[in-house]
Write a protein that binds this DNA or RNA. Sequence first.
DNA 1: ATACAGTCTACAGTAACTATAGGTTCAAGG
DNA 2: CCTTGAACCTATAGTTACTGTAGACTGTAT
Lengths: 148, 148
Amino acid sequence: MSNELTIGRVAKGTGCNVQTIRYYEQIGLLPLPRRSEGNQRLYDDSAVQRLSFIRHARELGFPLQAIRDLISLADRPDKSCEAADAIAREQLEDIGKRLQRLQALRSELERMVEQCKGGRIADCRVIETLGDHSLCETDDHVLPKVRP
Amino acid sequence: MSNELTIGRVAKGTGCNVQTIRYYEQIGLLPLPRRSEGNQRLYDDSAVQRLSFIRHARELGFPLQAIRDLISLADRPDKSCEAADAIAREQLEDIGKRLQRLQALRSELERMVEQCKGGRIADCRVIETLGDHSLCETDDHVLPKVRP
DNA sequence: ATACAGTCTACAGTAACTATAGGTTCAAGG
DNA sequence: CCTTGAACCTATAGTTACTGTAGACTGTAT
């Protein structure tokens, strides 16, 4: 069965909203879908998957340019190995930092929730946890490469 | 040592840029700092820490509203425990999902980089990795899919 | 046949910055 | 002191990534 879906079904299926899907098409992040007789967009499963990917990556805080890079890895398996490697490594570095900060924040929130069970919040250290610079790459706090 | 810093020093120290600091002040995310004779902002260490927190939380993809909530936890340790607990739990749930997705994506990128080392072109499954909805608990919008 | 929900394009509005213009402050060198 | 230039000030415009609205068209269920 070739499930062809309308934009509304795709939106429901991916958690994106309809306008966002059209926006992604407009900026070239999604390929132009085929249209029905009456000019309505019709999508297949690959579009649904790509859109899910974009949405999840955006939720993780990746900018659209990083997502474009990631997609290019998938779209161009014929790309030079060094180029793909460079993109993957750059993203990996960023992901490593995100993971560390998220884990630190989780620990801190877990500790708070645990204390809450006891009936009161003794001292809240969320700010300190995320205010800590120890996971930053350099001392002078250079912005990540995804933001040029 | 209660050193007073100019906005530029704070910007360097936190990795934010100067305009962003003024913007956060404008929208009430940062308290109004005291001013010098010549009307220039002067910050103390607590402002630096709060700003670092905001920056890291933003990098992790939290919207300013969630950050406001988190800050309110730190600012009012006398707040009702249920309210604080609710905010913390909500963020925790979100963080758990982010962590799983990031870890999945990292594994996939690591696998690709590993294949690259071997000199051959990796088959890329980044899209599938993050396209997967299995970590979405709000699966009611996910369309029927054949899964073993 | 007729509702009416869903889709279309085009454009305006929002969130969270980011950059620019045009002027003021301040610390360092002459 | 006086100058000079970097850093600061306010105000405003531009950017990214959406989100909402208006007014017309399509598709389907009674």
